[in-house]
Simulated scan of single mutants.
Amino acid sequence: MAGFSSNKPNAPITGINVTPLVDITLVLLIIFMVTAKLVVSRAMPMDLPRAATGGEVQQVFSVSLRADGTTYVDSQAVPRDEQVLQLARAALAAHPDLRAVLQAEGTVQHSRVMHALDVLRQAGLSRIAFAVEPGPPVEVGP
């Protein structure tokens, strides 16, 4: 198949044709290039920070959830979710690149945090971060 010999049927193969090997290698290279593009496109999207030496200060829409049931937007108490929605829409209209930071005390129920996240998404905010306090690193034993 890939070799050739003299006219004798029992003669040893004295050369190898490398053309099929190169063809297979190029086909595999193309397959890997296509699949790598598909794998990268399904990766987790990240909003990476931009480096700037100066300029405007970025606006942040802060929502704080307290354990006693109160909700604060930019350090002011807001009694209803409808008001949070209105404030978020107004802030987003004023600043199209607005980012939201959702802060919740450790004892706040998960369902309440998810509801606040849903309200922010209903307002059109897509850049939402969770505020945390740094803690001690987890040690791995030997």
Rank of each mutant, 00 (worst) to 15 (best):
N17K: 03
L21P: 00
V22I: 14
V22Y: 02
D23R: 13
I24V: 11
I24Q: 10
T25Q: 11
I30L: 11
I30C: 14
I31R: 04
I31K: 08
M33Q: 13
M33T: 15
T35G: 01
T35Q: 11
T35S: 10
K37E: 10
K37D: 08
K37N: 12
L38H: 06
L38N: 11
V39I: 09
V39P: 01
V40S: 13
S41Q: 10
S41F: 07
R42F: 15
R42C: 04
M44A: 11
P45A: 06
M46T: 13
D47T: 12
D47A: 14
L48V: 10
A52S: 13
T53G: 14
T53R: 10
T53Y: 09
G55F: 04
G55T: 12
E56W: 09
E56M: 11
Q58G: 12
Q58N: 12
Q58M: 14
V60L: 15
S62M: 12
S62Y: 13
V63L: 08
L65C: 00
R66N: 14
R66K: 09
A67T: 13
A67E: 08
D68F: 00
D68W: 08
V73K: 08
V73C: 06
D74M: 02
D74R: 00
Q76I: 07
Q76D: 03
A77H: 11
A77D: 07
A77G: 06
P79T: 15
D81Q: 10
Q83T: 14
V84D: 04
Q86I: 09
Q86V: 07
L87V: 01
A90R: 04
A91T: 10
A91V: 08
A93D: 09
A93R: 10
A94M: 01
P96K: 00
L98W: 03
A100S: 01
A100T: 04
V101Y: 00
A104L: 02
G106R: 13
G106H: 06
G106V: 10
G106D: 13
T107N: 13
